[in-house]
Measured scan of single mutants.
Amino acid sequence: LVRYRTISKIPQITLNFVDLKGDPFLASPTSDREIIAPKIKERTHNVTEKVTQVLSLGADVLPEYKLQAPRIHRWTILHYSPFKAVWDWLILLLVIYTAVFTPYSAAFLLKETEEGPPATECGYACQPLAVVDLIVDIMFIVDILINFRTTYVNANEEVVSHPGRIAVHYFKGWFLIDMVAAIPFDLLIFGSGSEELIGLLKTARLLRLVRVARKLDRYSEYGAAVLFLLMCTFALIAHWLACIWYAIGNMEQPHMDSRIGWLHNLGDQIGKPYNSSGLGGPSIKDKYVTALYFTFSSLTSVGFGNVSPNTNSEKIFSICVMLIGSLMYASIFGNVSAIIQRLYSGTARYHTQMLRVREFIRFHQIPNPLRQRLEEYFQHAWSYTNGIDMNAVLKGFPECLQADICLHLNRSLLQHCKPFRGATKGCLRALAMKFKTTHAPPGDTLVHAGDLLTALYFISRGSIEILRGDVVVAILGKNDIFGEPLNLYARPGKSNGDVRALTYCDLHKIHR
């Protein structure tokens, strides 16, 4: 019993810090008490220290592992850092350059016999395009090294910054494609005289377009951006097909006994025919423009016929181009109408809503002055909100995010209106959640004399007048207030005048 009563005193000691020596009952000389009392004092002292730490809000209350900052290894790049964003855009520009100039170089340097010394005699450094290609190869190699040090988000939505895990993730992902696209074939085969082989191998750079397509997928929600990307894709495919079309004609031209190829026909049409040795002929500019003209006309199913396939190889390629053109029509131009419709969806919704308003007016036989006010209010409210119901949009977000959005939407009023000066951010967040926005066209009466005042109004834009009878008592403008002081009276009061809008007004109100 003594032991039980001794232990039962522990909660009292913990909360009230009572010393055991003052209790005459606990001072009985028993061996059990002498053993338990020192333990009680020690526990009391420890609990006292913990309570003191909690009340003082000291940093040592938290466990040590929670006080440590997340460790980022040296030379690790955050995937959302500004440097990584700028670097990704730079790589994107280099990939676009590669997609345009690599097929052009591979096709127009394929057994090209233009006048001038061969590239091997001039030297590697004197070729501007080769120098640019070398810079692109170096940048792609540097990009691989950067990807080995860039964080990523795993399946659990955690940012991984450990170098080993980053390397394994990159090896399992895009490393092989990036490595093949970054191989400097110019340096590996330079001086061997195989410019045709170098041009063909350099087309491996186009593998990076797969990554670019995935990154550009984030802009699919913007109709104008999608339309622009589709047109660029169409032009890029036409450019690639033009390079292939020229390569076919250029390879067949020296081996044909009869002059029936499209390059021969082009030379005869523009007065620059090929001679018996295969030299001469149109310039590279004429060849490229004509090839691009043929691919565009074939892809769009126009086909004027002034550039036509004559050999079997050219006919087979033309059939493939027609098939590609039909697929592009289905996948690209078939979506253009939907994209344009999405661009004008706001206008369509406006006309639909206006039609419903006019049908309501016609069905209920609203008189002319009231009908005009109804239409003007709808037009003004639509121009202010673009038909978007803010309350319906915010309803799907958590309250903390709703408060931040409301604070942002009402920031101008909260910053410049005098009653809100000096208020804490928590108070402003709470008030912003209570605001209701209303609009009024010129001549609209917001409050009639004798109406119950259940709200306090803040003028965000425009001006109003307060009338008693036919006498203008006051004219209020931006950041002015009218209405009933909230919670100042037990019952809502009545208006002693009319409140009429002089201009288009936007008002925020808080109800009782």
Rank of each mutant, 00 (worst) to 15 (best):
E375G: 03
G346I: 05
H239Y: 03
E195N: 07
S331Y: 09
E314F: 01
P82V: 15
F378W: 11
V307Q: 01
I141C: 11
K436V: 09
T437M: 09
H364Y: 04
I405P: 01
H264Q: 03
V302A: 03
Y170H: 01
Q341T: 08
H408L: 03
Q365E: 03
R373Y: 04
L110S: 15
E221L: 01
Q372S: 13
G396L: 03
T98P: 01
A423L: 08
E196R: 14
R371K: 14
Q127L: 05
N275E: 04
F360D: 01
G303P: 01
L414I: 09
W89C: 03
I141Y: 01
D143I: 01
S276T: 11
N310Y: 01
S326K: 04
L187N: 15
A99R: 01
Y222N: 01
L413Q: 01
S277D: 06
G123F: 15
A403G: 10
T438V: 12
P103V: 01
L200C: 12
P369S: 07
C417F: 09
E359N: 08
I189N: 13
S192N: 13
L94W: 04
V168Y: 06
D268E: 14
P441W: 09
H264C: 03
Q402H: 03
S276I: 06
K172R: 13
R429V: 03
H408Q: 01
T424N: 14
Q127M: 12
W262I: 01
G280F: 01
V86D: 01
F360C: 02
A403F: 01
R356H: 12
I244T: 01
I177L: 04
H239I: 01
G191T: 09
Y222L: 04
R259F: 01
F140Q: 01
P419M: 04
V95E: 01
R208G: 04
A119S: 13
H416V: 06
M390F: 07
I177V: 14
F435H: 02
C122F: 01
I244W: 01
Y246C: 01
L197E: 01
D178K: 01
S194R: 11
R218A: 08
L93H: 01
M256D: 15
Y329N: 15
I284Y: 01
P282H: 05
W89P: 01
L78S: 07
L229S: 04
S258M: 11
T347P: 04
F363L: 11
V95Y: 01
Y377A: 10
V132F: 12
R362N: 07
Y170P: 01
N312Y: 01
W262R: 03
Q68W: 04
G116H: 11
V131S: 01
P419S: 12
L343Q: 01
V357I: 08
H448M: 04
W382N: 08
S283V: 01
D444Y: 09
A242M: 01
E158F: 04
G267C: 04
N312S: 01
L266F: 01
